[in-house]
Write a protein that binds this DNA or RNA. Structure first.
Lengths: 139, 139
DNA sequence: CCTTGAACCTCTAGTGACTAGAGATCCTAT
DNA sequence: ATAGGATCTCTAGTCACTAGAGGTTCAAGG
């Protein structure tokens, strides 16, 4: 029965983060040793691995809460899980689009800079004057 | 001489955010009217527009602090500004790469889902078992 | 001149998802 | 028996805001 440190190593979730998940109710409170230290079983390790993976995929903890509740209830329709994943996909796509616009603007700023003094610096100038942008990177 | 509300409208920075920037020292304290209300001048509006634009481009406030200090000192070399912008560009590129991997994984999860019950749901299953991923989307 | 209501003021606390630190206790190996 | 690392609880800090309470000021209409 692994300690919190061992559990952390096996799942890749940091020790304080595991305690944090317990505190906010995402993980049930584990058993305790005679000396009051947390002891995790296999089901708990799986649950943590699930959380870790979903976090890696960018799901917010509130969504993970919902997904865990579904995983605990295998007979239900998975439509709700699809909704959450679809929403997450849309959010990821939106962020990519936005970041791509930023990337182009930053590259343009940097290639136009003649590396002289601040007075002639294209980086500073563009930041001060949005009209110099080609991309719409607002919003 | 615009009030904080007018300034907000002109720069697109929300009123509480303007006060917040003043509080953390990013914006100097403006003048006040007879009734103790903030009054902004043209230089202040420019400074706020600069901040707004840099935030849109994803710069953290600490970097913006540095960029503003440079903008105030036009004779200096712009090398430091280049360093900040280059760092920001690298960070944006890294985020795009990561998000693109996530996007592919999410799309794969969703296309494989047969829309039945949770027990057969590919979304839930993939989340519970990282070995089912093709992409390396960790880190 | 008076009133209404929007805009303004300060201050505190909450968000998400942790992270850091203090100070105490426990466990393992020598 | 002791040294050290790991664990415990608790509080506070991070980033960039956002929300709310409770009070004041300003501009317009009557």
């Amino acid at each position: 029965m692994p300690s919190i440190g061992e559990t952390s190593k096996r799942t890749g979730v940091k020790v304080p983060t595991i305690r944090y998940y317990e505190q906010i109710g995402l993980l049930p409170a584990p058993g305790r040793s005679a000396g009051n230290q947390r002891v995790y079983d296999a089901a708990m390790l799986e649950r943590l691995a699930f959380i870790r993976h979903a976090r890696d995929l960018g799901f917010p903890l509130s969504d993970i809460q919902d997904l865990l509740a579904m995983a605990d209830d295998p007979d239900r329709s998975c439509a709700a899980a699809d909704v959450i994943a679809t929403r997450q996909l849309a959010s990821v796509k939106a962020r990519i689009a936005r970041l791509t616009a930023l990337q182009q603007e930053l590259e343009r700023m940097l290639t136009q800079c003649s590396h002289g003094t601040i007075a002639d610096c294209r980086v500073i100038e563009v930041l001060g004057n949005h009209d110099l942008c080609t991309q719409d990177h607002t919003g």
